[in-house]
């Protein structure tokens, strides 16, 4: 048994067409989706927690609603929308990213609202009366204070986006192949060893990301 162990499959896979691209695409997709989702979530939570306008309940509900949508429905919905409206992102990585943002905004917004509620209103007001504009206050006070929660949510969305299959499967093209779809098709083509090699690499990456993220958060929590 032991003698049949080999690392050959980890070398072989790199010669396959599209593998490097899939890794690069997945990295970009995870990072962009996580960053965009959490930034949008921060804005939404700021408005729903601090805002004084009438539609803030609606905004809160809207941001939470996608949790009820199955991935496959989001994938299909986003596909149809961008086939109709003339924004040329169909077939690119960005359409997958938009669908994933829709999928994870509920989690992001909840995380950030909880964090925003923890920040005393006077911390923001103290910045305003110090002569700093609302935008400057958001950047220099609110965001740094939200950072631990932001990073937490970022890692969560990043990992989910990194491994997500159904939406990627609905919306992928040759150009926008990602790891999960690659694994799916490698397996579909009957290459079990390579499939496993890819899966192990995917898991390793996610382990490392989780570990590094935890280290950062533990350090942050200590200083507060």
């Amino acid at each position: 048994m032991i003698s049949s162990l080999t690392t050959a499959n980890y070398r072989v896979i790199w010669d396959y067409p599209g593998v490097t691209k899939a890794f690069a695409n997945t990295g970009i997709l995870g990072t962009v989706t996580a960053a965009a989702t959490m930034m949008l979530a921060s804005m939404v939570s700021w408005f729903t927690v601090r805002g004084h306008f009438k539609g803030k309940r609606l905004l809160d509900t809207l941001s939470f609603l996608p949790i009820a949508l199955p991935s496959i429905v989001i994938g299909l919905g986003v596909m149809i929308v961008y086939l109709v409206i003339p924004i040329p992102i169909y077939g690119t990585l960005w359409i997958i990213s938009i669908a994933l943002m829709t999928r994870y905004i509920a989690f992001g917004a909840r995380t950030m609202s909880a964090a925003q509620l923890q920040i005393h209103k006077e911390l923001e007001e103290a910045s305003l009366v110090s002569g700093v504009s609302w935008l400057g206050t958001f950047r220099r006070i609110v965001l740094p204070l939200l950072a631990p929660s932001f990073v937490n949510g970022f890692i969560w969305v990043f990992i989910h986006a990194f491994r997500e299959l159904s939406i990627a499967l609905m919306l992928f093209s040759n150009k926008s192949i990602v790891l999960s779809t690659l694994i799916y098709f490698t397996w579909d083509a009957g290459r079990m060893q390579e499939t496993c090699a890819l899966a192990v690499i995917l898991m390793l990456i996610l382990f490392i990301v989780t570990f590094v993220g935890r280290l950062y958060l533990l350090k942050k929590v200590k200083t507060y």
Binding site: H120, E122, L123, E125, A126, S127, L128, V129, S130, G131, V132, S133, W134, R140, I141, P144, L145, A147, Y224
Partner: peptide, 30 residues
């Protein structure tokens, strides 16, 4: 006029000291 355009400064009941900065960081902020 929003607070940042008024010639005032303010001390709050909760002190509102920013926890992610040093003492000096807080005071130099304005």
């Amino acid at each position: 006029l929003p607070p940042n355009e008024r010639n005032i400064s303010m001390v709050f009941q909760s002190y509102a000291i920013w926890p992610h900065m040093t003492t000096l960081g807080n005071v130099v902020y304005p």
